[in-house]
Design a binder for these strands. Structure first.
Length: 546
RNA sequence: UCCCGGGUCGUCUAAUGGUAGGACUGCGGUUUUUGGUGCCGCCUGUAGGGGUUCGAAUCCUCUCCCGGGAGCCA
């Protein structure tokens, strides 16, 4: 079950817009694909998945699950120059983390032979030809928007000649760039995608799966629709920039069907485009992310500041929250940019419901209870999760010397400051009321130690006489504090493109975009528990133990 | 310039010919053993002009604006 969230998914009674869902439902009603629903998620294994891919995954897998259908993970590994097995494994891993475990991924490269045979069929029927012009020439002949293209001088060459030349390409007898196989469609077509697109190019690179078996590799367009058809995909969902490719997608399938002795053994899949995810303050350009990794701005693809799925994972984003976010924002054709705050709100909502609370002091300031019995240690019972009683309580040691947050004391308080200040009584969470009786400073006047007196009648944080305090503060016993490294997210995005210390490498980022990385500081902290869990933390959002 | 998409609060999204609603953000209040959480409230929107209709965000029409498209990338 993919959509098993209850608390998180029901932010709005109404389902978010999902025109693809409506379309699939309509197809089912009309019996278009015999009630069958099959989708696919087709990443190229040339990098790590980021949050933008997450939406596509959610759409592809989520929709299939919703209609009791199937969603394949199919690697679009048609370009040996850029693809590596390392990425295949990482993508499978990220998918599983997001909640979509794939038992057996598929590969476009598994269809290379079939694709080749279909290409030969198209040649034989005069629908494809070998062009010996170079790339610049072909590009120039394609024409422009509103300007017709020019037909290649090789366009009308004899079928036998194209067939022999293509065989040579396949056999590895042709240099890279010397020839391509092109579909013969229409050089005057107003849709540029249909001006004799390239089906095969020569590459002598070793492919991550097929090794040196092939010397020709299919282009995206020639591979995609047929791969869908071979697998029995009914709904081929992709992003908006492929809208113009749909005509070609259909042309290839229609043409193969027309010239095949047996036709195609499946219903023709239908491509539908939806808007990709854009998030404010978030880079999803693979090139720019790679730049950040390569120049050491971040520690790697899984750096918590990265918008990659593995970055989000280390950042402590629960996959359930991410999926709930995707459900909420819906699927539409409108070009849109979601605010990162909306994603964060889902993260907070989820974390608030499930996180075990712990106290942690980031910038410690020592506090001494002057009337505390020497060497006395008490165990205070604190609630693990106020949102869920079942999470129980824990015992936290308390002594006469402890740390509080530096910001929680002010020698000279500004107006409306309710925390510790000379003469004021506050509550130490789950422990005692204490009243500030003084403080010590160093030569520069900086506060080094705060002195308080405690009221022994207020154990647990309640005064028998019913008096109240304006503020409750967290603390960690100095004697028992555990030193931890935590990844801290005070604000979940950066405010500006970094300055000189990291700025140079990012010159080609738009300096006005304010879209860079999530602000993330990895800091030392004194916590009341050993590392190991994601916990929510007062005022700061939340943190994850490193 | 040609083709294809798309325009509802600041943002995302409902309303498919019948009260323009929700969430996020922001602001204010309230509760609270963390200034968190919760709860309540406020703010702001149908790109524009014509038309059809008792009635239009919705249908027609013209205009404007935004996005994508001329890799041997995907």
């Amino acid at each position: 079950m993919v959509n098993s969230e209850t608390a998180n998914a029901s932010r709005d009674e109404r389902a978010a817009a999902n025109f693809v869902r409506d379309l699939v439902a309509a197809d089912n009603e009309a019996g278009t694909f015999g009630g069958r629903v099959q989708t696919r998620f087709p990443p190229e294994p040339n990098g790590f998945l980021h949050v933008g891919h997450g939406k596509a995954i959610s759409v592809d897998f989520g929709l299939a699950a919703e209609f009791d259908g199937v969603c394949n993970l199919r690697f679009d590994d048609t370009n040996p120059d850029t693809e590596e097995t390392e990425y295949v494994d990482a993508i499978v891993d990220d998918l599983a983390w997001l909640g979509y475990a794939v038992e057996r991924p598929l590969f476009a490269s598994d269809y290379f032979q079939q694709l080749h045979d279909w290409a030969v069929l198209l040649i034989d029927h005069g629908f494809a030809y070998v062009d010996e012009q170079d790339g610049d020439t072909i590009s120039a002949q394609r024409g422009g928007y509103g300007r017709p293209g020019v037909e290649s001088p090789f366009r009308e060459r004899p079928i036998e000649e194209s067939r022999a030349l293509f065989a040579g390409m396949v056999a590895g007898e042709v240099d890279e760039g010397a020839m391509v196989l092109r579909a013969k469609i229409d050089m005057q077509h107003e849709n540029m995608q249909l001006r004799d697109p390239i089906m095969y190019r020569v590459r002598h690179a070793s492919h991550h799966r097929t090794g040196d078996t092939w010397h020709v590799y299919p282009t995206y367009d020639w591979a995609h629709g047929q791969s869908d058809a071979i697998e029995g995909v009914t709904h081929s969902l992709c992003t908006l920039e492929f809208q113009d490719n749909r005509a070609l997608y259909d042309w290839y399938l229609d043409t193969i069907r027309a010239v095949s002795p047996d036709g195609l053994p499946f219903d023709q899949p239908r491509q539908t485009e939806f808007a990709r995810l854009e998030l404010t303050h978030t880079i999803t350009s693979k090139r720019k992310l790679k730049q950040l990794v390569d120049d050491g701005t971040v520690d790697g693809w899984d750096d918590p500041r990265m918008p990659t799925l593995r970055g989000l994972r280390r950042r402590g984003y629960p996959p359930e929250a991410i999926r709930a976010f995707f459900d909420f924002i819906g699927v539409a054709k409108t070009n849109s940019r979601n605010e990162i705050e909306l994603l964060e709100s889902f993260v907070r909502r989820h974390l608030n419901a499930v996180s075990l609370r712990r106290m942690a002091v980031l910038r410690p300031l020592e506090v001494v209870i002057t009337n505390w019995p020497e060497r006395q240690v008490e165990e205070m019972e604190l609630v693990n999760n106020p949102e869920n009683e079942a999470d129980g309580t824990r015992l936290v040691p308390f002594t006469g010397r402890f740390w509080i947050e530096h910001d929680d004391f002010r020698a000279e308080p500004p107006p409306k400051y309710y925390r510790l200040t000379p003469g004021r009584e506050v509550r130490l969470r789950g422990a005692y009321f204490v009243t500030c009786t003084g403080f010590e400073t160093d030569d520069d006047g900086a506060v080094t130690r705060v002195l308080v007196e405690y009221d022994s009648e207020t154990k647990g944080g309640n005064a028998p006489d019913g008096r109240r305090v304006k503020s409750t503060m967290h603390w960690v016993s100095a004697e028992h504090a555990v030193d931890a490294r935590v990844a801290l997210y005070e604000r979940l995005f950066t405010t500006e493109v970094p300055g000189s210390e990291t700025g140079e490498v990012l010159d080609d980022l738009d300096p006005n975009s304010r879209e860079l990385l999530t602000e993330c500081k990895v800091e030392g902290a004194l916590v009341d528990t050993p590392p190991g869990t994601v916990v929510q933390f007062e005022r700061l959002g939340y943190f994850a133990h490193d």
